[in-house]
Nucleic acid binder design. Structure first.
Lengths: 157, 157
DNA sequence: TTGTTTTATATGATATCGCATATTATATTT
DNA sequence: AAATATAATATGCGATATCATATAAAACAA
């Protein structure tokens, strides 16, 4: 009977939901690719959340905490604590907003800017290697696809 | 002098490294898209790592811990603890491998399989909505791109 | 003004995560 | 076989992340 056939091939990937699941593919690709660079980052004595903050501030210095947390892909309360540590290390400074004193704006220090610049260079170099290694001729399309996706998701809450 | 010009446009995105950085685009897209579904998951009383384990086991039951950790995108020691909790909740069971008793294989319980099935259905529905919402006509290409990327990165260490 | 609501950040308690290493089992070498 | 090396999982601890809420400022309403 058919029931017997079910027993065969238990080591083959029969159903394979996750292999074709967009969110898993994204998470997995991100996890693997970023993992490589995060090792480099660690080597420079910088943690992942710190790297994200440095990179975001380098692009746009003086962001307020809530906004920065969104860009750096972390929770507000976690960013606050990360900022504490980075302040102690002399990488960033807090300054309360003149116009609205609830707001706290974060600025790179000279040291922080220098480190950020160095890491961004490393990131660029790593990206180049990665793209070459993956033979991604369609990299422009992929990036624009991801950008569209992000924009849509951000606006759609 | 030129120095004065630097002061202008401090609110424009001048350099914008991260906006075009592949790893950031991937992380950001993954973060935002998965974030949506993770809320659903939470609503079902399931945590993200648990959901990943359930989905992976549903595709391939009886995996050993190390292998499963890789697929579920988490560290081995963390998976061990997640398995502890899931075992207590009656979602999975441990069974040591006959041939090599160092190995521990993880199996879905009936309850676990049922939950996994329910969540996979939810995930499929969510994915459909997401793809429709994003108007992703090129979804097949995107997925195959990500798959290629993952395969390359996995094999390359 | 005073009271109420909303917004921005900080804080504290708790759970999660990750590193280093312990434990146990197998493989290899002598 | 005994000793050593390697492999798979578990454990302890310190760091990190998250939730709920506190604090403080601004906006709004009465």
């Amino acid at each position: 009977m058919d029931a017997d056939l079910k027993e065969i091939d238990t080591h083959e990937k029969e159903s394979g939901f996750v292999d074709g699941y967009l969110l898993y593919l994204l998470a997995s690709a991100s996890h693997l690719a970023s993992g490589q660079f995060h090792e480099e980052i660690r080597g420079a004595g910088v943690r992942v959340p710190e790297w994200r903050v440095l990179a975001c501030l380098r692009d746009n210095d003086g962001q307020m905490v809530t906004q920065l947390a969104r860009f750096a892909l972390m929770e507000q309360s976690h960013l606050t604590k990360t900022i504490d540590q980075m302040t102690e290390r002399g990488l960033v400074t807090r300054r309360s907003d003149e116009a609205d004193r609830r707001r706290v704006r974060i600025f790179l220090s000279g040291k922080g800017r220098e480190l950020a610049g160095k890491l961004v260079k490393q990131a660029s170099a790593h990206e180049e290697r990665l793209i070459r290694q993956l033979g991604m001729s369609d990299i422009v399309q992929v990036k624009s696809f991801l950008s569209r996706m992000i924009e849509t998701l951000e606006n759609n809450e």
